Simulated assay, not measured.
Amino acid sequence: MKTRKLMTLTGALAVSALALTACGETEAGQQQSEAPAAEEGGTDWTNCTPGQDSAEADVAADENKNITIGAYNGWDESFAVAYLTENVLEDEGYTVNVEAFEAGPGYTALAQGDIDFAMDTWLPITHADYLNQYGDDIEAAGCWYDNAKLTLAVNEDSPAQSIADLPDMVDDYGGTIYGIEAGAGLTQQTEESAIPTYGLDDYDFKISSTPAMLAELKSATDADENVLVTLWRPHWAYDAFPVRDLEDPEGAMGDAELIYSFARSGFSEENPEVFQLVKNFVFDDEHLASLENIMFSDEHYGGEDPEEAVAEWVEDNQDFVDDWKAGALA
């Protein structure tokens, strides 16, 4: 089982860069638009506080000890939270399998009961179509993150505080914005919204790849030089490098979304304590970025051993796990 899980994640990482070019299939590839209003009598997915239904979870009490967790290819946080949950449940005597899917087939598997839960639904925009299609056959298990967004980011000691400062600071940043893949929603949002909104036409927007952007970010921060990149949250770069987001007073990069967990229909009755554990989950930027950094950056495990990476993180963050079980993260 361990070998199967490792192969699953390795395959996911192999397609991750490719998925960036498919708008809507990765966090960097999402399309930003105005959030749809909730239908009459429907759920307002913007109305959620992470961990709002928290309570103590006695996960050892559930009789069913075999759990399958879905994770979505191209979405690092999906594998981070899946393997973290696996670690906690296996410590309580469960047998856990993490299965990788493209987002569409993943929702199909969830609705058909082939997996027990997945913890990476972006709402109210990115995954709304999947909820419209499968919402009657899956159970909401709360939101755990409320800052999923596209950004323009700079080195921590950079002079600019806002995107609005950039037109007067072209020379400070070498006249360059370092971007990612041409087909990514982040690239489109920067090109079609941020640049015209803030008058950034004097900058050379270098559209390349995520690894190339990260290499520029690392090179500049190592050399204590100013740098301007397109980025998104959640991402491990916020833990690996001294980087911060620029304020976006015009909202040109789009609003932040929430990340929800969903379970197969009936899971809350069959595994009420594990379902409660999932509802208890809350990740802030600092904890999430640090876990992703250990799991995915070349300086650590580089995606090669997710279980060992998570075990290392848990060893340094046992208080987080204890609070999670106790429902005290919110």
Results as ranks from 00 to 15, higher is better:
73 N>Y: 09
186 L>T: 03
191 E>G: 05
320 F>I: 02
46 T>V: 02
272 P>W: 14
194 A>K: 07
318 Q>N: 01
10 T>L: 12
172 D>Y: 08
280 N>G: 06
78 S>F: 04
120 D>W: 02
103 A>C: 07
257 E>V: 07
74 G>R: 03
272 P>V: 12
63 E>V: 15
234 P>I: 05
234 P>N: 08
186 L>H: 08
177 I>M: 09
23 C>F: 00
106 G>W: 01
106 G>N: 04
264 R>I: 06
328 A>L: 15
211 P>A: 02
242 P>T: 13
240 A>I: 01
142 G>C: 09
229 V>R: 01
10 T>Q: 15
165 D>K: 09
179 G>N: 07
124 P>N: 07
18 L>N: 12
302 G>V: 11
179 G>A: 14
152 L>K: 01
243 V>F: 14
18 L>R: 11
217 L>G: 12
285 D>T: 05
306 P>I: 12
72 Y>E: 03
52 Q>M: 15
310 V>K: 11
20 L>D: 14
91 D>W: 00
203 Y>K: 10
185 G>W: 06
323 D>Q: 14
26 T>V: 12
112 Q>W: 01
108 T>A: 10
46 T>N: 12
134 Y>K: 05
245 D>Q: 13
110 L>I: 08
323 D>C: 00
207 I>N: 00
164 A>Q: 10
214 L>C: 01
79 F>N: 03
320 F>D: 00
